[in-house]
Simulated assay, not measured.
Amino acid sequence: MNKNRQQSIKTYYNDLAPEYDHDRFANSYGKYIDYQEKKVMHKLMLHRDKETTLDVACGTGRFLRYARYGLDISPNMLEVAQRKYRNRLLFEGNASQMPFEDKKFETIFSFHLVMHLDKETTRQFLEETSRIAKPGATLIFDFPSKYRRQAINYKAENWHASNALSTIEIQAMTTQWLVKSSYGILFFPIHRFPPSTRRYLRRIDTWICRSFLKKYASYIVVILKKKV
């Protein structure tokens, strides 16, 4: 990822940090996505050891309950996260060059990161997570669905959420990780529904996002296993 793009992302989230939680997740649209993502994370992380878990792009700490370690490019986001979780070990850095030793983590997860990267930096992220992951470790992350965007003919205007992919493309980017399963997030175009109806649609949306139609959801959460 070029330095200008990296600096744009850092500045964007530094400026947003004080109001991030409220702006993104206090409204009915944000609560809808938050509900689905938390259901997936609860299922995947319930019995994992947070002492050997890293949250990459931890932001203000929405999922730090599951991880002992956190990494983010934005010092302002980290400051908010540290106030929430004073006993977490948080580091400033980027996803393609992380300040951790080899084979340290059993689980690594990342939400709302890969969507902002380019394809080459996504490959670097997969290589770097492989370096710091133990053999047999699990990697979990999300990205915008390429199939959904093709179906609705959507193209991002800038770096924000521009990196649409498929699970097939993810697997083609790495020889160290194996794609094991996936979930969809946000099948319905919920922004087109009245806010008062959105909570009633969550259950059926969640069901569709676990069906054969999941690749047409807005976002895909993919679960990978590192080769032993």
Rank of each mutant, 00 (worst) to 15 (best):
K155P: 00
K215N: 09
P195Q: 08
H160M: 13
E19A: 13
C209G: 07
A137K: 00
H116D: 14
A67Y: 01
S130A: 15
K10C: 03
S211W: 10
M173S: 08
T129A: 05
L186R: 15
T53Q: 00
M98Q: 10
I168C: 02
K155T: 13
P195I: 04
R123N: 08
N158D: 15
L165Q: 12
A133T: 06
T175A: 10
R83W: 00
N87S: 10
V221E: 00
G136F: 08
G30A: 03
F100P: 03
W207S: 08
P135D: 09
R202L: 13
T122M: 08
N158I: 04
D23N: 15
K104H: 08
S211E: 10
S196K: 14
I170V: 15
E37C: 07
R192H: 07
R62N: 12
L44W: 08
M98P: 01
R48V: 08
E127Y: 06
M77T: 10
R83E: 13
V222R: 01
Q97Y: 01
H112N: 15
Q7K: 14
D72Q: 09
W207N: 03
F143T: 05
D118V: 07
S110R: 01
I152F: 11
T60S: 15
R24S: 14
N153F: 10
F187Y: 15
P189D: 14
A57Y: 04
K50A: 02
K225Q: 12
T197D: 09
N27S: 10
A161E: 15
A67G: 07
Y29R: 11
S28H: 08
K227G: 10
N2I: 07
K119C: 02
Y66D: 02
F91N: 08
D23K: 14
T11D: 13
S218G: 07
R5H: 00
P144K: 05
Y154G: 04
Q6K: 10
R5P: 00
R86L: 06
S218L: 11
C58N: 04
Y35F: 13
V179P: 05
S145D: 11
K146I: 05
M41C: 13
Q176A: 14
S8K: 10
A81T: 02
K214E: 07
H112K: 09
Y219R: 13
Y32N: 02
E128G: 07
R123H: 06
L126Q: 01
N2T: 04
T206K: 09
E37A: 07
F100I: 08
T11V: 10
K39Y: 04
G70N: 05
S181C: 00
T174A: 11
D55W: 00
A26W: 05
E19G: 03
F100D: 04
T175L: 06
E128W: 11
A156Q: 07
Q6Y: 00
M77N: 04
Y147P: 02
M41W: 06
E92W: 01
R148K: 15
I185T: 11
V80M: 11
K155D: 06
Q171L: 04
T60I: 14
R62C: 02
Y219N: 13
L71Y: 01
T197M: 14
Q7D: 14
D102Y: 01
A217Y: 05
I140T: 08
A217N: 03
P135N: 12
K43F: 12
P194T: 11
A156V: 12
M77E: 13
I170Y: 03
I220D: 00
Q82C: 01
K227D: 07
T167P: 01
L54C: 06
R198D: 11
R199V: 03
Y216N: 05
G61T: 03
Y13A: 10
T121I: 00
